[in-house]
Amino acid sequence: MFLFIAKRLVQIIPVILGVTLVVFLIMQMVPGDPAAILAGEGASQDTIEQYREDLGLNRPIAEQYLTYVGNVFQGDFGNSLKNKQPVLDEILLRLPITMELAFYSILITVVLGLAAGIISAVKPYSIRDVSVMVVALLGISLPSFWLGLLLMYLFSVKLQWLPVAGWDGPANIILPAVTLGVGGAAIVARMTRSSMLDVIGQDYIRTARAKGLKEHFVIYKHALRNALIPVITVVGLQFGSLLGGTVLVESVFAINGLGRMIVDAIRTRDLPMVQGGVLVASLVFVFVNLLVDVLYRAVNKRIDLN
C-alpha cells in the first residue's frame, strides 16, 4: 500500500508539471506584449521595460517556464495586477470558503446519490425506481446556475426561509451546497443503481440468499459494499465537475470563493490571479483524485493480484 501511494505520487509529478505548463502558456497565448499587460494599462514605456527586466520576460520561454515553476513551488504566484498584492494571499483567503462549499456539496452528492440509487435498485422497474430515475435525469439536465436562481427565488424571495446570498452563517451554506450537489447526486444515483443491479445478479448474492439471510442483509451487507467500489471512482470524478461548478454557484450566490475570484479576475484581465486560481483548483483536484485512487485500492484489495 505504501509502495502504491509512493508510485502514484511519482506518477502525478508529470501531470502537475503539465498543468503548470498549460497555466503558464495562458500568459503566452494572450495577444500583445505580456510586459505591457503586467505593467497595467497606461504604463509608460519605461515602466514596461522595467517589468520586462524584473520578471525576466526578455529571456527564452523555456527559462521563463522554469522560473515560473520554481516560483510556484516556493509559493510565489506573482502579484495581482489590480492591487499589486501577492496572488497567494488572496487565494489563501478564498480557498477555505470554496473548500467548505465543496465539502458540503460532495456530502449531498454522496448521501443523496447513494440513497436514491439504492432505493431504485432494490425494486428495479417499480414505480419508485422509475420516479427516482426521472428525478435523477432532471438533476443532470438542469443548469446549476438556473437551479440556484430558482431555489433562491423560492426559498429566499418567496418563502423567505433562507438568506439570499453571502457567506456569513450555516443558513447561507444550504442553498449553494444543494445547488452544487444535486447534479452530482443524480449521477451518483444512476451509477449506484446500475452497479447495484449488476452486483445483485452475481453468484455470491445467490449464495447469500441460499444461506437464508434476510433480504436487507443481502442488500446492505453483501450487495451494497461491492456495488460501492465503482461508485468511488465516479464520486472522485464528480468532485472535479463540482470544483468547476463552484465558479457558477459562487457567482449566483455572491460567495467570495476561489471560483468567483477567477471569474472576476478574467473580467478585469488580472492574469496572474487567473493563473493562480486555476492552478490551485487543479492541484486540489489532482490530489483528490490521488486520494480516491488510494481509497479505491484500499476497498478493493483484489487489484493487488492483477
Partner: peptide, 12 residues
C-alpha cells in the same frame, strides 16, 4: 486534470 470548466476558463 483540470476540474470541470476551469480549462475553458483558462482559455477564455
Amino acid at each position: 486534470a483540470f476540474p470541470g470548466i476551469l480549462l475553458a476558463l483558462a482559455i477564455i
